[in-house]
Amino acid sequence: MESVLHEILPIVILSLAVSLTAVLISCVLGMPLGVCLALSRMRGRSIIKALAFSGMAMPPVVVGLLLYLLLSRSGWLGEWQWLFTTRAMILAQVILDLPFVIGITLTAVEAVPEELQFQLQSLGATPWQLRWTLLGESRNGLMLAAMTALGRGLSEVGAVLMVGGNIEGHTRVLTTAILLETGRGRFAIALSLGAILLTLALAINLAFIKLRRQTSR
């Protein structure tokens, strides 16, 4: 039992570390972009919006393959030496998470009535203060964006397997471990890992629901 725990715990910790870091980066980059897109009247806005929404359907394995080619020794980003590291796994998840964060943020901010924007400006809000206030008003949508991205990251297998390599003690996460154990025929362990993944997802969603209740008060 102790040896199983010893084996599994680092995998759980790495899964959380990779996915949470990717979500954090995606939120920092994607939320301001989503707000700007929602408020902007620039040309080509609908094309960017369509790209963001299409990005949600991006197959992880294709992202993994493209990143693999870019990060491999002969690739454009080969100099970084990121292939088969957690950095590459985080980068893959950021690319997969970003469209969700941008798309959901954009939709949440667009749902705030335009008249509210005018009324806030009439109270003296500068463009940046307006954006900040609208972010606050869209907080439920923003939380949903972060949770969706986290869910996608935690359950993702194709991209992290290709760029992480599933190296024990280095880049092995829950999903790649499940794949490996299934291949080895160790279904009991694979199922246990699956149960841990589901429990994590449930715990995160419960925390989200509680946070949402608190912020809605």
């Binding site: 009535p113 008249e115 509210l116 009324q119 806030l120 400006q121 009439s122 109270l123 003296g124 809000a125 500068t126 203060q129 206030t133 606050g136 008003e137 809605s216």
Partner: peptide, 30 residues
């Protein structure tokens, strides 16, 4: 100039905050 002018709209929309926070909002911006 625009900060010297305030509007009370016909159909006011308030922020999802407390009443006090809404009243303080404009001052907070300044």
């Amino acid at each position: 100039d625009s900060r010297r002018i305030a509007l009370v709209p016909q159909r006011p929309l308030l922020l999802s905050r407390s009443v006090r926070a809404n009243v303080e909002y404009g001052l907070q911006l300044r």
